[in-house]
């Protein structure tokens, strides 16, 4: 039905780059959420289905902080200061929520194995999502324009917003920091050791409980901030927004190779770009069908994802 419209070549190229930037923005949100999934998975071998909903919780907490009774924050600290302070509060409270989720829903179930964990994770996800609905209502909430920085400009001919640049910048910075912590620091070494083999790590004197605390604080904390950033960027939040981001981020995690930090980032960005190119050049209606077909195709040829290591079966 839509007939092709021809433009001059330059225009087409810049549209392509525009779509690329669009995809990177979506992808950086997927990547931020995927990072939390992947970190938790790496250590716990657990798909934290509640992660997407903790992301939504972050968005709602941020909304309440920025608009509610404490909405004075932006007034006293300026817009960016207020957002920064809110982000910090959101990170801390969602991190706390993450740790609580682990204590309540996972720790007692851990001895019963992974399948039970999947169910308790699903239970937790359903609980958080509906608790958000019970507290904030079922209608979507919108961040008022007054708390959202807005500036539009053109970068190499591609229209971008200041927020887009900021979000991309912050996402990459956060991913880099996490990557540095996990790959380069001593504590990161402990995390990686626990991910490889918890029993041996314990024998080596690593406090695995501390590591678990750390990943369940950092992953969801990061997810919470991502939720806030998401709310600010798109202005609208809804109680069930976690499912969609959760599912896509999980897809991204697997695409990149689960438990692999750079893999999660790569998976998220690729997924975002692929989605955007599909929606931009193929069909919006069939987009997700192709996304999943692509994922399956990748897994047929690389059964442990793009960056996942092919582990030889230990016999």
């Amino acid at each position: 039905m839509s007939r092709p419209v021809f433009f001059d070549k330059g225009k087409k190229v810049s549209t392509f780059f525009e779509q690329l930037v669009n995809g990177l923005t979506v992808g950086s949100f997927y990547a931020l959420v995927a990072l939390g999934y992947s970190m938790v998975y790496g250590v716990m071998k657990l798909i934290n289905f509640a992660h997407g909903d903790l992301f939504a919780l972050g968005a709602y907490l941020g909304y309440s902080l920025l608009t509610g009774a404490t909405g004075k924050i932006t007034a006293s600290m300026g817009l960016w200061g207020g957002i920064g302070f809110t982000a910090l509060l959101v990170a801390l409270s969602v991190a706390l929520a993450g740790v609580l989720v682990e204590r309540i829903a996972y720790r007692p179930v851990y001895p019963s194995g992974r399948l039970s964990l999947v169910v308790s994770a699903l239970g937790m996800a359903i609980f958080i999502q509906n608790a958000i609905m019970a507290i904030w209502g079922s209608r979507p909430r919108a961040f008022p324009a007054s708390v959202v920085p807005s500036l539009r400009f053109s970068l190499f001919g591609i229209p971008v917003t200041l927020l887009q640049v900021t979000i991309l910048g912050i996402s990459f910075a956060l991913m880099l920091i996490i990557w540095l912590i996990v790959e380069k620091s001593n504590f990161g070494a402990a995390v990686r050791a626990s991910a490889l083999d918890r029993e041996t790590a314990t024998l080596l004197g690593i406090d695995v409980r501390k590591v678990i605390f750390f990943v369940f604080a950092l992953g969801p904390g990061l997810g919470g901030v991502a939720g806030l950033m998401n709310g600010l960027y798109y202005r609208a939040i809804s109680f069930n927004m976690g499912w969609n981001y959760g599912l896509k981020a999980f897809t991204a995690t697997i695409l990149g190779g689960i438990g692999n930090i750079p893999g999660a980032m790569l998976g998220g960005l690729i997924l975002g770009v692929v989605e955007s190119l599909l929606a931009g050049y193929v069909s919006g209606a069939w987009k997700d069908v192709f996304v999943f077909i692509l994922l399956i195709a990748v897994l047929i040829f690389r059964p442990t994802g793009l960056l996942g290591e092919k582990t030889a079966e230990k016999v």
Binding site: L117, V119, G123, M124, M133
Partner: peptide, 12 residues
Amino acid sequence: MFFGLALLVMMI
């Protein structure tokens, strides 16, 4: 919400 909680409690 109760349903989610019930799943959790069962698994615990």
